[in-house]
Amino acid sequence: MMSADKDKAAEEKPAAEKPATKEAETAPPAPKNTKSEPKETETAPPAPKDTKSEPKETETAKPAPKDTKSEPKETETAKPAPKDAKPEPKETKPVAKETKPAAKTDEPELPAFEKGISDKLVEKFGDKVAVKFVKKDRVGIAASRDNVHDVAEFVRDGLGYDHVESVSGVDYPQDKEIEVVYHIGSYTDPSLARQILVLSTRAQREESPIPGNDATKLPSLRDVFYSVEFHEREVFEMLGVYFEGHPDNRRLQRTLR
């Protein structure tokens, strides 16, 4: 739709609402400016080598069945992990670079309050979430794309966080994944005022994005945290992650002629 729009002449884009309507019902627009994803081009060539035993289908299949590719990772790291028993077991891969940002390994005692938060999450979700790190004022958890919505709801309702400060997409070309990181904070709860909960989730990364039909999809958290609205649009523009359920899933900037 966007590309069609681009081809049209100037007077042909009057309706400001057209992109929204069409995208919402049909397919997401394509990342037509590839400048925001230079990483893909530089690391694209590696063949679909499945270092991990993921039952991942070949890259060309864009519909990308949701569960198959991200579940194995979770099971790998899923050890209840109250202490961040290092995702290093997983990192037996030769490339050490795309390790998940691991926590401090040699921190003997964990801050109690933050530990409580992560414990609550683990208690609620069991091995559906993985605690990535617990340090002062920051708790990092990872959830699979199926669970991230539930986790976010629990974070809002059960833990008292109320807004998302930042949504960052991190590209891991070697993993063929894109990580989306939500930094969630709280205004209302004074005890949480200095806490940031780092909720991360991963989506499969496409090697050759198809315009208008992004296979990199994640559930949108907009109905949980209203404040992710523009952030998710930005991540969509910059990294091509299509957030399903986002009501206004356009690129952040309108197409320029």
Partner: peptide, 15 residues
Amino acid sequence: MTAELPPGLALQKVD
């Protein structure tokens, strides 16, 4: 467009 669109972002039909 569904009914529960956010205020302001739901651009209406151009009258």
